[in-house]
Amino acid sequence: MSVLLTALAPAVGYLAEDPVTVVVTTGEKIAFWVLGPLSLLGGVGMIFAKNAVHSALWLVLTMLSLGCIYLAQQAQFLGFAQIIVYTGAIMMLFLFVLMLTGRESSDSVIEVLRGQRVAALLVGIGFVGILATGIIHAVRGLTVVGYETAVASTGGAGSTEMKAIATTLFTDFLFPFELTSALLITAALGAMVLAHVEKRPGEKKSQRQLVAIRMRSGRMSPLPGPGVFATSSSNATPALLPDGTIAPESVSALVEQSESRRVVERYRADRSLTAIESAEHQQSGRPDGTADEGGVAR
């Protein structure tokens, strides 16, 4: 709901403007009547979207439209700061979390609390009413002076928008500004405390320790991926064809041939693939389905 109001705020401000004192250019009017409905659409879409990520994307649309409205009103710094902070950082963090919930996790249509929807609707409308009247009251008495005068009145004559904002922020609004930063730091610390996992010293292995363990484990390389029939990490190990014979192209000619042969002989002396195969399908009636040693095939 508050999104809707954020979207509404410029509209309210616009309606409260006195058309006599301030000249609104046609370009600005067009921009407003394109961007205003877009930002409203974003707010409405956010509420009615079934998928959480779609909801976040609608909100992104609202944020972007608001940024563009600022740009259309010459407040370039504010506009781009809005895009960087809200669209770039905050909504991206939202998305980051929402993506982890999975794609199929849409809102359930079943109402858990009875009458919850109706109550929410009524309270929401009431909230919009209160905020809208509050904003209109606050804005009504103001005289609209335009961008240049507003900037010059706070930052001094000929100053930029950045200077005006900085002056306001670090003089009149210093205390709220510092309070907000304290709130944010508390939130960040709280998140860190919640996410922190205490570990005994030495419990977490360093990369060097892990490497040492791996190197001494007998298999330095990771296990081959699923579907790959590999029994050794040596590149002298040839591939075996389904009938157990060696695939001659599978070993590079650059590898010492005697080494390759030795590996194969050792391997074939140990176990043969026919045994493995016959253990798997005894019922298919292979003539040599005799051996069942090793229990290799699982």
Partner: peptide, 9 residues
């Protein structure tokens, strides 16, 4: 040059 069979791993 040892080939590691299934039984060991």
């Amino acid at each position: 040059g040892t080939a590691i069979g299934q039984t060991t791993t």
